[in-house]
């Protein structure tokens, strides 16, 4: 039985002289929800297009369901790449019926998936009159036709309002849990992926920086105690002597001390009894976002873009 739904080996893509993907090797196990994170222009869509045979790689291989990609294995994959491709002069149902001819699926499936994505009331409406969010939902419904075993979704919540985003998350989790479908989802919105993905692939400038499970990510995003006090040099010395803390850092007025929350009261006691007034003490946990930002340098954080040197 195949352990991996999708693997890539050294995927590289050049457009002219520009390297867009550089030796990307990823591994997506069956049943995973794999979050593919990276800033705009990192190579996420290019990687997905190569996997789906829309682009030819400069070098590298793609393995689907345990064997090198064939037409048979691609027929087990559903996808939504960039904006959904739809016949805008036709109704949602007509679009679904057309694609069901080549993707698979019965009329019953069409109604089921339209209901699942919340479009059952507008099935006969022309797609040209749909909002961006409605088109996105229809694109997801079309990707589900034919009961694929692997779904590749490129920015699936693009254009959706918060309720729509929640609905898409619920759909993904339902299908993953009930049918064991593997998901390969790209996004620059880490907050959304965080809620559903159990494995992350971090890509930047065409290179896969890291693949990490959410459990490992959780472990790496540790706690810290943040103290605002005077005599910072003396405070750092005391922390080293009493708690063995070597990597505490001064950040402006604050000392950032990697430590378990349970010792925060002890830290306070040691500093105060040594004559160092403590004005403020908080417990922080490094977020996934901060960790992944540190791996990447640049990330689109919801509505704005966070740029780091």
């Amino acid at each position: 039985m195949e352990e991996f739904a999708l693997r890539t080996f050294g995927l590289t893509k050049k457009f002219g002289g520009k390297m867009v993907l550089n030796n990307v090797s990823m591994n997506i196990r069956k049943g995973d929800i794999y979050g593919f994170i990276g800033p705009n222009g990192a190579g996420k869509t290019t990687a997905m297009k190569i996997i789906l045979d829309l682009l030819k790689p400069t070098s590298g291989e793609v393995e689907l369901f345990g064997s090198m990609r064939t037409s048979g294995s691609l027929s087990r994959v559903g996808s939504l790449i960039e904006s959904p491709g739809l016949y805008t002069g036709c109704s949602a149902i007509e679009n679904m019926k057309r694609f069901s001819i080549i993707c698979g699926g019965t009329d019953k499936d069409i109604l089921f998936y339209l209901r699942m994505v919340g479009l059952e009331g507008v099935g006969n409406k022309k797609v040209g009159a749909f909002s961006l969010g409605m088109k996105q939902r229809l694109g997801i419904a079309i990707a589900l036709l034919g009961d694929p075993e692997l779904l590749i979704l490129d920015e699936p919540v693009n254009g959706l309002d918060p309720m729509g985003m929640r609905d898409v998350r619920d759909i993904i989790q339902f299908i993953n849990k009930e049918r064991g479908v593997t998901f390969f989802i790209s996004s620059h919105l880490l907050g959304e992926l965080e809620k559903i993905a159990n494995v992350y692939g971090v890509i930047n400038c065409g290179m896969l920086m890291e693949e990490i499970t959410s459990a490992e990510l959780d472990r790496r995003c540790g706690f810290s105690v943040r103290v605002r006090c005077e005599q910072q040099d003396k405070a750092l010395q005391l922390l080293k002597e009493n708690f063995g803390v070597e990597n505490a850092q001064a950040e402006g007025e604050f000392l950032n001390i990697p430590a378990d929350p349970a010792v925060s009261s002890k830290i306070n006691e040691v500093l105060v009894t040594s004559g160092i007034p403590v004005h403020e003490l908080t417990i922080n946990k490094m977020s996934y976002e901060d960790y992944l930002l540190s791996r990447m340098g640049t990330l689109n954080v919801g509505n704005g873009v966070g740029q780091y040197a």
Binding site: L54, S71, S79, I81, P84, G85, L86, I102
Partner: peptide, 18 residues
């Protein structure tokens, strides 16, 4: 040219048909 204009070419070409 319709499939390219509408973007449906991505769906058609990614289904594994030669």
């Amino acid at each position: 040219c319709e499939d390219k204009a509408r973007g449906t070419v991505k769906t058609i070409y990614s289904l594994g048909y030669s």
